[in-house]
Simulated scan of single mutants.
Amino acid sequence: MRFQKLYSDAQGESHWEDIDVELEERNFAPPAKAIEVSRGERVKQTMFLRLKSGWDEPVHPTPVVQKLVCLSGKVRVTASDGEYRDIGPGDVWHMEDKHGKGHHTVVTSEEDFLSVIIQYE
């Protein structure tokens, strides 16, 4: 299991990095059998987000550290260094590029882009 992290370096340039999620087998929901689960993360809030088909935003940094879990549709997210990632159903995008040049997002699917946002601050 992995997610895609977008972060800014000290010069404000945003970059992508693939992060592997470590899973550990443990009793998560007794009396059910042990399952593989990651460590928990404290969050501030969760919300649902829709970007309508054709939506194209100006370049900006993320306002807070957050994860986006895509439910349906697709977006293309381009870091300021020019590398892009296509985010689609089941993909997880972790945003940490709070300063600097930011990123550009455009909906590339004919359908709306639906997701869950998990904010950390």
Rank of each mutant, 00 (worst) to 15 (best):
V43F: 01
K33A: 14
L49C: 10
S72A: 09
E41A: 10
W16D: 04
D20T: 02
E25G: 10
V37I: 15
K5E: 09
F28L: 15
I35W: 09
Q66S: 07
E57K: 11
V64F: 13
K33W: 10
G88I: 05
R76N: 11
E22Y: 00
E22K: 09
D86V: 12
V43S: 05
S80P: 13
S8G: 07
L71I: 14
A34K: 12
V21D: 03
D56H: 11
Y84T: 13
L68W: 02
Q66K: 12
D9K: 12
R76H: 07
I35Y: 07
R26D: 13
P31N: 09
V77M: 03
R42V: 02
S14T: 00
P89K: 14
H60L: 05
K74Y: 15
V65Y: 01
P31W: 08
C70V: 04
A10F: 11
M47Q: 06
K44C: 02
H15C: 11
S38T: 10
T62E: 05
Y84V: 11
A34V: 13
P63I: 07
K74N: 10
R42M: 00
G73S: 10
T46V: 06
E13I: 08
G12W: 12
Q11C: 07
Y7F: 11
L71F: 11
E36D: 07
F48R: 15
V21K: 12
E22C: 01
Q45I: 00
P30R: 11
N27A: 09
E57W: 05
R85D: 07
R42A: 07
S8Y: 12
S72D: 06
Q45F: 01
G73K: 09
W16T: 05
W16L: 03
V59C: 01
S80I: 06
Q11I: 04
L49N: 10
Q66E: 05
E17Q: 12
G54I: 06
K5H: 02
L51R: 05
G40N: 06
R85H: 03
L6W: 01
A10R: 14
E83F: 09
H15E: 10
A29H: 14
E57R: 12
G12L: 15
A79I: 11
P30S: 14
E24I: 10
I19H: 09
K52W: 01
L68Q: 03
D20E: 04
D86P: 12
E41T: 12
H60K: 14
Q66I: 08
S14A: 00
V75D: 09
K52I: 00
C70P: 07
F48A: 07
K67A: 06
L49R: 15
V77G: 00
Q45L: 00
H15L: 10
F48M: 04
Q4N: 03
T46G: 04
P31Y: 13
G90I: 05
Y84H: 12
V75P: 00
D86H: 15
G73L: 04
E36W: 02
L6I: 02
G90F: 03
D9C: 13
P58F: 08
R39D: 00
E57H: 07
L68H: 02
G90P: 11
A34G: 08
T62Q: 04
V43A: 00
G12K: 15
S8I: 15
L23M: 00
L23K: 05
E25Y: 05
S38D: 03
I19M: 09
I35T: 14
T78R: 01
N27H: 11
M47A: 00
L23I: 04
V69D: 13
L6Q: 01
V65I: 13
E24H: 07
L71N: 11
